[in-house]
Simulated assay, not measured.
Amino acid sequence: MHKNRFIEKFESKSDKELEHIAFNSKIFVLDARYAAILILKKRGNNSQAIKKIEKEYENRIQEETRKKENNIETKKQIIKHLKNIPIKEKKITPLKNGNKLEIKRLSNNNFEVRIEDNFRSALAPVIICKIITNSNYILFPFFYVKSILIYGIGGTFLFLILSSVGILKNDALLILLPIITVILFQIILTPFIYFITVYFFKNQIKQQ
């Protein structure tokens, strides 16, 4: 159970003030009201609010526990689904908007997750899913290496050739422009791509 930060603040209040807090659910959050009745009980006060708020608090704890258990069960299902993907192979799932959710197993516990959307997705970052235990994993954004190799390094190499034959100005910044652009583009898109990809990743696997 988490520490109730209101208890120390309310210790100096009178019984009447504590009862006012306990009875005002529209003004005070449940933690504050629960702290008030804990202090009242400690003082031997038998306010009628005590049992009511104790039950309300107990119901909240049970709901939080239920959500936590459901979250763990959902993660177990997702991990089980991921482990059915052979290493170095992809699982492609069509989305309702016409795009595709692509999950590639990189190694035993690491997966690359991305949304395939023709050219735009080729310049977007990916999400890495790393399995920690049988009931937990972490998700974090990462550069889409294939995009950097093809458009970044490939484009830089092309600019270097064009520069060497005099078609482009022999300028280092200009030659490196493709790889700089691709990396910056992925960095800028990271926050948006992360939340969208994670949303579809969790919801699509839960439905399978």
Rank of each mutant, 00 (worst) to 15 (best):
R5N: 14
E19K: 09
F28I: 03
K16I: 15
D31T: 11
D31C: 10
L30Y: 00
A36E: 09
I37P: 05
L40T: 08
F28S: 05
R5E: 14
L30R: 03
K3H: 13
A32W: 04
K9P: 07
V29F: 11
R33E: 00
A22F: 02
S14K: 07
E19L: 06
I21F: 10
K26N: 13
Y34F: 14
A32S: 13
Y34W: 04
I27T: 15
L40G: 00
I39N: 00
K3Y: 13
E11Y: 12
A22S: 10
L40S: 10
I39V: 07
E8W: 08
D31K: 11
R5Y: 14
K3L: 11
S25R: 13
D15H: 00
L38A: 10
N4Y: 09
R33A: 09
S12T: 13
D15P: 01
E11W: 07
N24W: 02
L30I: 12
E17N: 01
K16D: 14
R33T: 03
S14L: 02
I7W: 04
D31A: 12
K26W: 02
A22G: 06
I27C: 08
K3N: 12
R33Y: 08
E17K: 10
A35C: 02
L38K: 11
R5S: 14
I37F: 06
I27E: 14
Y34V: 06
L40H: 10
F6A: 09
I7L: 08
L38V: 09
Y34L: 02
F28L: 05
E8R: 06
K3A: 10
N4T: 07
E17M: 03
F6K: 02
S25P: 10
L38C: 13
L18K: 09
V29S: 12
E11N: 12
H20E: 14
I37E: 03
A32G: 13
A22L: 03
E19V: 08
S14P: 04
F28G: 07
N24T: 09
L18N: 04
K9E: 15
K26V: 00
K9A: 12
A32R: 04
N4H: 01
D15Q: 09
I21Q: 04
A35P: 08
I27Y: 13
I37N: 00
F10R: 07
E8Q: 12
K13T: 02
I21H: 03
A22W: 00
F6Y: 15
N4C: 06
N24L: 01
H20S: 15
V29K: 15
K16R: 15
K26H: 11
F28D: 00
A35Y: 06
L30M: 10
F6C: 00
R33P: 02
R33D: 06
R33V: 01
N4Q: 06
N24D: 14
F23S: 13
A35T: 10
D31Y: 07
K13Q: 10
A36W: 04
H20A: 15
L38E: 13
N24G: 01
I7A: 06
A22D: 02
N4G: 03
A35Q: 03
Y34Q: 01
K13L: 15
Y34G: 00
S25F: 15
D15C: 02
F6S: 01
S12A: 12
V29Q: 13
F10H: 12
L40C: 05
A36R: 00
K16C: 11
F23P: 05
L40I: 06
D31E: 15
K9D: 11
L30V: 02
F28H: 14
I39M: 05
